[in-house]
């Protein structure tokens, strides 16, 4: 196990403040304006791995003035396939170039038998999967020479075989590996709604000293379930969970995720800045967007390749 940071809260990682995901739609704004109006950026690791196009040029500029965090979606940490060494090598190479504050991915699996679904699939939460994921987290941390930060995904089904709650699983995982946690309060809200557990209880029962970052986002209500669409303003219930999480942690890095129907950059930042008010108790009033026809969940990998003249 990585020995360093064992006794430091949040693995010795600092509160970066308020950040947004770097999306190609905002490249023109960010290249024209020197002040990005946020404290840091999160990149989707896979969109930049082996990508030497314009996106890297934009990243070159931004990383000179703002901290960057790498957030992945394809580490496949929960799969019973062997860890993909080609993927890890490319991830490490990107990290050497970006020098991120931390590297994160999701507590899930994305593929099996070499096939990739490009989705964040749920794990049965059992002693078997806990042992399996813990082993792999330790291997990845040893290879990357830094702690891995794992995000709780939104889930739409639970397995009959599960014997542990998700918050108990995360607690045990942290105990075994000292990994970091990326607490996505929107995902807690979505999963809690879909499975009938208390979101507040979830947040109050994870190892809060290992939470290094919080995600906020807006889901969509399809009647009898929520989908993690990341295409809406943050609704009031998620802001309330955010306030709770910030109170419990004492304040950690905040990232607004918005992956579809992306607003103009200044509007995105305006939404992010509501986080300051939420922490003070001025919870923004915003309903959960309702839809009738099922659409897809968030798709941060849909990263349009752009040229400078688009």
């Amino acid at each position: 196990m990585l020995k360093h940071h064992k006794n430091e809260p949040r693995l010795g990682l600092k509160n970066l403040g308020l950040g947004v995901g770097l999306r190609s739609e905002h490249f023109p704004y960010l290249m024209k304006n020197n002040d990005p109006m946020v404290d840091w950026f999160e990149i989707i690791s896979e969109n930049f791995m082996n990508n030497h196009g314009y996106a890297r040029h934009v990243l070159d500029k931004l990383k000179k003035t703002r901290p960057i965090v790498m957030h992945g979606v394809s580490m496949n940490i929960g799969s019973t396939d062997p860890l993909n060494t080609t993927y890890l090598k490319a991830l490490k190479e990107l990290a050497e170039y970006v020098q991120p504050e931390w590297i994160s991915d999701h507590l899930c699996w994305t593929g099996f038998a070499g096939k990739n679904t490009h989705d964040l699939l749920p794990l049965p939460l059992t002693e078997e999967s806990l042992k399996h994921v813990s082993k792999r987290v330790l291997e990845v941390q040893d290879y990357l020479k830094r702690p891995l930060v794992l995000e709780n995904p939104s889930t739409y089904l639970e397995f009959k075989q599960s014997t542990i709650t998700e918050w108990e699983f995360l607690s045990a995982l942290v105990e075994k590996t000292n990994c970091g946690l990326l607490l996505d309060v929107n995902n807690v809200f979505v999963s809690a709604t879909n499975h009938g557990f208390s979101a507040e209880n979830y947040i109050q029962n994870i190892p809060i000293e290992n939470v290094v970052q919080i995600h906020i986002a807006g889901p969509t209500d399809y009647g009898n379930f929520l989908i993690d669409t990341h295409d809406q303003p943050v609704p009031t219930p998620v802001w309330k969970l955010y306030k709770l999480a910030q109170e419990l942690t004492g304040g950690v890095s905040t990232l607004l995720e918005w992956d579809a129907n992306i607003p103009e950059y200044p509007e995105l930042v305006k939404e992010l800045k509501k986080a300051k008010e939420a922490v003070l108790g001025n919870i923004p009033i915003n309903k959960i967007q309702k839809q009738e026809n099922f659409s897809i969940a968030s798709n941060p990998l849909n990263f349009k390749l752009v040229a400078n003249n688009e």
Binding site: T117, H118, D119, Y156, L157, F294, I296, A297, N299, N302
Partner: peptide, 13 residues
């Protein structure tokens, strides 16, 4: 949700 989402997501990409 997962089954329909699989194809829908990748077709969108």
């Amino acid at each position: 949700i997962y089954s329909a989402g699989y194809t829908m997501r990748l077709v969108e990409c």
